[in-house]
């Protein structure tokens, strides 16, 4: 009998160790990036374009990457929401609870969610070649949109599924059509839309493999959809491989900015979720 207690103690110790290890990983990742990047981060870096050529330039910053990422993420988020909200609405209002299309669709989104972004990138690239498009802001936006649609749909659907039937029926009993209940549905899942959006933005802004193929890279801020554009993760990735210390510094500084953005996004996502569940009771 004593033996079972000892075994339990040992495993419990291992559990504490695993949590400590994960804590160490989190702290180590954030700490190492900030410690290397923060000293070299300056206002000039975030507010100016790289000067005198990308790989050799010793002056300038990565404004091109910040703006490029904002363009890509902004465009993809808007497009993504335009597609996913109607799909979620269709899945939950028009389709019957156990319809075949509904379950096939949900599995397909699960799978799309799991497809690595490098495959999205390669696929997007073939499509662009097929249509005669070159790597451009537009291409980047399209691929990132495809990448975040499954994230949007899955996390909104999760909440939409729990909308009580009574609420819908209250609408129907007043004579509204299914389309007219959209207001009710959107209000019910509003917090989910917010968290899904944050989640999607987080994933979109960090994606490098997808945009590498489709958006390319550039030292300037794009002025039209057909121009190539830089993005934060790629700016980190490319500049790190440069031999000059100054260029590498720029990469680490960009990494700090990227990490900070993602930290804010994920913490505010949890905050909204907590608020939401508290109000829901």
């Amino acid at each position: 009998m004593k033996r079972a207690i000892v075994i339990e103690k040992v495993w419990k110790l291992l559990m504490y160790a695993s949590i400590a290890l994960v804590l160490f990983f989190v702290v180590s990742v954030v700490w190492s990036v900030f410690r290397r990047g923060l000293p070299v981060l300056s206002w000039e870096m975030v507010s100016s374009l790289p000067g005198g050529g990308f790989y050799i330039g010793k002056e300038g910053g990565f404004l091109n990457a910040i703006v490029g990422s904002l363009y890509i993420v902004g465009g993809a988020t808007v497009l993504g929401l335009l597609v996913s909200i109607p799909v979620v609405f269709y899945l939950n209002v028009y389709l019957k609870p156990h319809s075949v299309l509904g379950s096939v669709a949900r599995i397909a989104y699960d799978i799309l969610f799991g497809i690595p972004s490098i495959v999205y990138g390669a696929f997007g690239f073939t499509i662009m070649i097929f249509f005669g498009l070159r790597t451009s802001l537009l291409g980047g936006i399209i691929v990132v949109t495809l990448l975040i649609i499954p994230i949007f749909i899955r996390s909104m659907d999760e909440v939409a599924k729990t909308i009580p039937q009574d609420i819908m029926e209250a609408g129907y009993s007043l004579g509204s059509t299914r389309l007219e209940t959209i207001g009710v549905v959107v209000r019910q899942i509003a917090p989910a839309i917010a968290t899904a959006t944050l989640l999607g933005i987080g994933r979109a802004i960090g994606d490098a493999a997808g945009v590498m193929f489709t958006a390319g890279f550039s030292d300037s801020i794009p002025t039209s959809l057909t121009q190539q554009t830089a993005s934060l993760p790629l700016s980190v990735f490319f500049q790190l491989s440069a031999p000059q210390l100054e260029v590498q510094d720029r990469a680490y500084a960009a990494a700090v900015v990227l990490t900070a953005i993602v930290l804010v996004l994920s913490l505010s996502g949890r905050f909204i979720m907590n608020r939401f569940s508290r109000n829901k009771v």
């Binding site: 994960v22 490098a208 980190v236 790190l240 990227l258 993602v262 949890r270």
Partner: peptide, 24 residues
Amino acid sequence: YVFPLLDILAGLPSVIYGVWGMLV
């Protein structure tokens, strides 16, 4: 306290993990 930690870990972009890999 632990769930937000996992959120952070889940949310970090892969390029940041790459930087961490190179640095640590």
